[in-house]
Lab assay of single mutants.
Amino acid sequence: RDLEAFAERFKQRRIKLGVTQADVGSALANLKIPGVGSLSQSTICRFESLTLSHNNMIALKPILQAWLEEAE
């Protein structure tokens, strides 16, 4: 599925960039996405391991996609 593929790709890119889950969570606040502050390390972990609810995964995907584009 698309979400699973993105979560795996996100994790691989994050590791390759040398960024921790906690770093991603705090960096999201710097993107200044309306309504989005920082996220906890555990939320990033649960996204990568696909243990969040489907609706949460869908909500987080564009936010994490934006971070990934900014980081690369």
Rank of each mutant, 00 (worst) to 15 (best):
S40V: 05
Q21R: 11
R1C: 04
L28R: 03
M57N: 09
R13V: 14
I63P: 06
N55A: 15
G18H: 07
Q65R: 06
S40H: 08
S49A: 12
K32I: 09
T51P: 00
L64V: 07
L64G: 01
L17K: 07
C45W: 05
R13Y: 02
R14H: 01
R13I: 14
R46G: 11
L60F: 07
S40Q: 07
H54K: 04
H54M: 13
A5Q: 12
K16D: 05
A59L: 11
K61F: 05
L60A: 10
G37M: 09
L64Y: 05
G37L: 08
R14T: 02
L31S: 07
A29Y: 09
K61R: 14
V19W: 12
I33A: 07
E72D: 05
D23W: 04
G25M: 08
P34E: 12
S42H: 15
T20I: 00
D23K: 15
F47I: 02
A59D: 15
I15H: 04
Q12V: 08
I63H: 15
W67Q: 15
I33N: 05
V36C: 05
K16W: 05
T43K: 03
A71E: 07
F10A: 00
A59R: 12
S53M: 06
S53H: 05
R1T: 09
A71T: 10
H54T: 14
K32Q: 13
E48A: 01
F10D: 01
M57V: 03
D23S: 12
A71V: 07
K32H: 09
A27G: 05
A5K: 07
L39F: 09
K61E: 06
A66T: 11
F10W: 01
T20C: 06
S26K: 09
T20D: 07
S26V: 08
N56Q: 15
K61P: 01
N30K: 14
L60V: 12
F47P: 01
S38D: 07
A29M: 12
E48R: 04
R13T: 09
E70P: 01
A29W: 01
A7T: 03
L60G: 02
D23Y: 07
D2P: 07
T51G: 09
V19S: 11
T43R: 03
I33Q: 05
L31R: 11
L39C: 09
S42P: 05
E48P: 01
E69V: 09
Q41K: 14
A22M: 08
N55S: 14
R1L: 06
S49K: 15
C45A: 14
I63M: 05
L64K: 01
V24K: 01
L39M: 13
T20R: 04
V24F: 03
S38M: 13
S42V: 10
A66I: 09
A27F: 10
K61A: 09
T20L: 03
I63L: 08
Q12I: 12
R13N: 05
S42W: 06
I63T: 11
V19F: 11
Q65C: 10
P62M: 01
K32G: 08
D2L: 03
V36E: 10
I15G: 04
F47Y: 04
G25P: 04
Q12W: 07
Q12M: 09
S53G: 11
K32P: 06
D23C: 02
M57H: 03
D2F: 05
R46D: 15
R9A: 11
D2C: 04
L52C: 01
F10E: 02
E48T: 00
K11P: 00
S42Y: 03
L68W: 03
R14V: 00
A22H: 12
A71N: 08
A22R: 10
E8L: 11
L31I: 14
E8K: 13
Q65Y: 15
W67R: 02
C45G: 14
E8G: 10
K11R: 11
S49C: 07
A71S: 09
F47H: 01
A27I: 06
R13G: 12
R1W: 10
L39Q: 02
L52S: 01
L64D: 03
K61Y: 08
I44Q: 00
R9F: 06
S53E: 12
E70K: 15
S49V: 01
P34W: 04
A59P: 02
R9M: 15
S38V: 09
C45Y: 15
P62R: 02
P62H: 08
S49Q: 13
M57P: 00
I15V: 05
V24D: 02
A22P: 04
Q65M: 08
S53R: 06
S38A: 13
G25W: 10
V19L: 13
Q21E: 07
P34F: 09
E70M: 06
L28M: 13
K16M: 15
G37Y: 05
L28F: 08
S40P: 09
A66F: 08
Q21K: 06
N56S: 15
I58V: 12
D23F: 08
L31K: 13
I44K: 12
Q21V: 13
P62V: 02
S53C: 04
S42R: 11
L50S: 14
E4K: 10
L28A: 03
A29Q: 15
I63F: 15
S40T: 15
Q41E: 15
L28T: 04
P34C: 02
T43A: 07
F10S: 00
I58M: 10
D23R: 08
A5G: 07
K61V: 14
L17P: 00
C45K: 11
G35F: 11
I44L: 05
E4P: 06
R13A: 14
I58P: 01
I33H: 05
A59V: 08
S42I: 07
R13W: 06
V24W: 01
S40Y: 02
L31M: 14
I33T: 06
R13H: 10
L52Y: 00
C45L: 09
A7W: 02
Q65V: 06
S26P: 02
K61L: 10
R1M: 06
A5E: 06
S40M: 02
M57E: 03
I15W: 04
A27D: 10
L60D: 03
K11M: 02
K32T: 10
E69C: 12
A5H: 11
L17A: 05
K16S: 13
G37I: 03
E72V: 05
N56K: 14
V36K: 04
Q65D: 09
E69K: 04
L31H: 05
N56D: 15
L28I: 15
G35W: 04
I44V: 09
L17C: 02
C45P: 05
P34V: 06
I44E: 03
G35S: 08
M57S: 03
F47A: 07
E70C: 11
L28Y: 02
M57K: 01
K61H: 10
L31W: 14
G35C: 04
Q21C: 13
R13F: 05
S53W: 03
H54F: 11
F47D: 01
N55D: 13
I15T: 14
Q65F: 06
I63S: 08
A66G: 11
T20G: 05
P62Q: 03
G37S: 14
N30L: 07
E70N: 02
G25D: 04
K11E: 00
L31T: 09
C45V: 13
E8A: 08
A27W: 09
Q65T: 09
E69F: 07
E8Y: 14
R46Q: 15
